[in-house]
Amino acid sequence: MAQAWKCAGLRWSAEGPVLRWAGGRSSALARGRRVAFAVAEGGVRTCVGARGNACPLRAAVPGRSTGARCEECARLDRAHSVAADTIADDPQPYRVYLAWFGPGLVKVGITARARGAARLLEQGAVCFSWLGCGPLMAARRTEELLRAALGVPDRIPYAHKRAVRAALPGDQAERTAEIAELHARAVALGGWPESLTPEPFEGVDHADVFGIGDPDRFPAAVGEVAELVAGGAIGGGLVAAAGPDLHLATERGVVVLDTRLMTGWELVAAGGDPCAVPVRGFREAAGVQDGLF
């Protein structure tokens, strides 16, 4: 009987993306590597728990959930989250940043200084620049100030990021131009907290890290995996990886797999380059979804 592995999510290291598995194992994901797996017939996706603790109910969770947590575990996980504004007394310094995912897709956010650029890699930011550094609440107030003054959000749906990824400018200067202009406007604003130190513009580009920097060698994806299902399989050569997404060259063309859909399933190795899972076309920027095919 094939050995079953349980995915614990994708993480970015200095060497690139790494798939983590329950029990501490990991798989480095170099471009060109073949990645293929299947869900056993009759398999059930179960809650991954919260804050390092197993779900006491081993509750079943929907296949389309990117969080893979039941309602109670999701509540516990967010109870200690900077992103959810439930922590206000973290003493470590935080940085404010501008991140660019494609033309018109810019967000402002904060991340702990100790994490470096890891948060930007995890989000799939094609390029970014730091704006300033200071205490958590000063960073949060600056984030809110810039959201209002610059008209940029603090979240961008992953579906929008995927939809534009194959049509990005091939020149790094073009990719960083939008955040360079917004950075200049941001530092010219009044009302920054005195405890937050502004940082000069320095555009950092991740296109080559993700494998999407050369538009002539980065094939457009035909769609994205909507969910994994019992008895389904997905796999192929790794064309690119950005944020939680793997671009796989399957038998149906390049398909984007959000690795957050893998968590909670028992997975086994699969042969060939299968695409026996529901796939949907990319949503437009306005959020209109194509039908399944």
Rank of each mutant, 00 (worst) to 15 (best):
A173I: 05
D171N: 10
A184H: 06
L150Y: 09
P200M: 12
R162C: 11
L168C: 07
Y158D: 10
R175F: 08
A186F: 12
G170E: 14
A167M: 10
H183Y: 12
V187N: 02
G134T: 04
L146F: 11
P135S: 07
A173F: 02
L145E: 08
E143T: 03
A159C: 08
W192Q: 11
W130N: 11
A148P: 03
H160G: 01
A125P: 00
Y158E: 11
H183K: 08
E181R: 15
V126K: 01
G191R: 12
D171C: 07
T142D: 04
A177D: 12
A138W: 01
G151T: 08
G190D: 15
E199D: 13
G190F: 10
A125L: 03
L150N: 11
T197C: 11
L131W: 05
G190A: 15
C127F: 02
E143L: 08
G132S: 11
A149Q: 15
A149K: 14
P198V: 09
P200T: 13
P157N: 04
Y158A: 12
G132A: 10
G134A: 06
W130C: 04
K161I: 14
L146A: 12
I179T: 03
E174V: 05
V152K: 06
E143Q: 14
P135T: 03
A177E: 14
L189T: 14
P135N: 05
D154I: 04
L136S: 04
L168D: 02
P193G: 15
R175G: 00
L168K: 00
G132Q: 06
L146M: 13
W192G: 09
L136I: 02
R155P: 04
I156H: 00
H183V: 04
G124A: 02
R141L: 10
A139Y: 06
A159D: 14
A177Q: 13
P200K: 14
C127M: 01
T197D: 12
A163G: 09
R165Q: 14
T142Q: 13
I179D: 04
A173Y: 02
